[in-house]
Computed example of a mutant assay.
Amino acid sequence: MVTSMINLNRPPIAGFGVQKCVNTPFDLVIASEDSRRVNANAVIEINRVWSAIASQLDIGGQHRVGYITITPNNVITNFDLTTHTTDSAIVTAFTAVPEQSNANGNARIAQGLDAIRTQLDNNQRQNAARYGLVLSATLANNNALRTASQANADITMFAIGIGDIFSNLDRAISTIVRYPPVDKYRRALMMVSFNQFRDNVVENATLRLFCPGDIGGRCGRDTVCDKAANTICVQQTCKCNQRLQNVNGVCVTGPVINQPCNLGECSVFNSECVLGVCACIEGFTARGTFICDSTTDEIDISKGDRIGEYEDITIGVLAAVFPFLITGINLVNPSTLAAVARR
């Protein structure tokens, strides 16, 4: 069984309610494994992560999200793309999904891919991107999975594996994202434990591919921040210019250090609203009211994120965790986050 020493009395995940990708319409169907490998506490943490991601989207507007559970015996639709039309409703829905299986054996991941396609096909929207996201701890990488993956070639698939790299699970995760080939190396993540999943997945370079060029989306190299005015590329993420804040996908004037604030309003880079006042996040120190300086050495992430540039390169390490994105969380296993893709 894949287990984690998870502290269920943790504070809310940083980023709740701060909307991103508002200028990029898409539909997302998430499919999570629930089996003997995934204990009840892990299910709670997984659902909290999904709810944190959904809370940052424009549910009922530009974005729709559906949720599927994949077990060794069946595939369960918890809710589909049209069920929930507000952020609060979908957050509540995610956190209400219980553990649904304690069965041994491999989860039906291939059938889960089929269910993702069915939801997206039955609820198509014009000009909306089609995304699927699979969380798996199943070791099976078989013909059924390869066939289902190829059938989803018109859906941009993301996959997260909880387990060892260089394993059958690792290869299965790579199979899920094989089609379409664009950015396939960046759309696969491997994590060693559910603690690492919970602590690292909400803000990472993989999920920022949901809306490249938009606020909260990926940028750099051949991608510029062009979906919203007054934005800038900071550490490969599109953000509002200094002294501006993101309000429903528009960058407007916001409070600075030591000024009163509400969640998500602070406009200085590397700051957040703490007890109603804008302050620098952990690892940064205020220099005046407009600057938060790092108290640690800068890390060059551009090289760490360079994976899969050549077809014969099979391994890449994705520097995906930034201290200003997730705060107040203790890593049980501080292993480096690895993004691994094959073929």
Rank of each mutant, 00 (worst) to 15 (best):
I6T: 14
L8K: 14
P11C: 11
P11M: 11
G15R: 02
F16T: 14
G17I: 09
C21Y: 00
V22M: 04
T24M: 08
A31T: 08
N39S: 12
A40D: 10
A40F: 01
V43R: 03
I44C: 11
E45I: 15
W50T: 08
W50P: 03
S51I: 15
Q56D: 10
L57R: 02
G61V: 13
Q62I: 08
Q62A: 15
H63Q: 15
V65T: 05
T71Q: 10
T71R: 05
H84C: 00
T85N: 12
T86V: 10
T86D: 05
I90K: 00
I90G: 03
T92I: 04
T92S: 09
A96E: 05
A96P: 03
E99D: 08
N102D: 06
N102S: 14
N106M: 02
A107H: 07
A110G: 02
G112M: 01
D114Q: 11
I116T: 06
T118H: 03
Q126F: 13
Q126C: 02
A128F: 15
R130C: 03
L133Y: 05
V134N: 07
A140H: 03
N143S: 14
A144I: 13
T147A: 00
S149A: 15
T156C: 00
I160Y: 04
I160F: 05
G161R: 01
G161M: 01
I162C: 00
G163C: 06
D164F: 09
D170R: 07
I176P: 05
Y179E: 05
P180V: 12
P181A: 14
V182M: 08
D183L: 02
R186D: 08
A188I: 07
L189C: 00
M190E: 10
Q196S: 00
R198H: 14
D199G: 05
V201K: 02
R208T: 10
I215H: 01
C219S: 11
C219Y: 06
G220H: 12
D226M: 05
K227H: 15
A228L: 10
A228Q: 04
N230R: 13
I232L: 11
Q236L: 12
T237K: 02
K239E: 10
K239Y: 09
Q242L: 09
N246L: 12
G249I: 15
C251M: 13
C251Y: 10
T253P: 04
V256S: 04
C261N: 07
C261G: 12
G264W: 00
E265A: 12
E265T: 13
S267E: 01
V268H: 07
F269A: 02
N270M: 06
E272L: 15
V274G: 02
G276Q: 06
V277D: 00
C280V: 14
T285E: 09
D293N: 15
G304V: 10
R306L: 11
R306C: 08
G308N: 00
G308Q: 03
G308M: 00
I313R: 04
I313N: 07
T314C: 07
G316A: 11
V317Q: 02
P323G: 11
L331Q: 13
L331A: 14
N333P: 01
P334D: 13
A339Y: 08
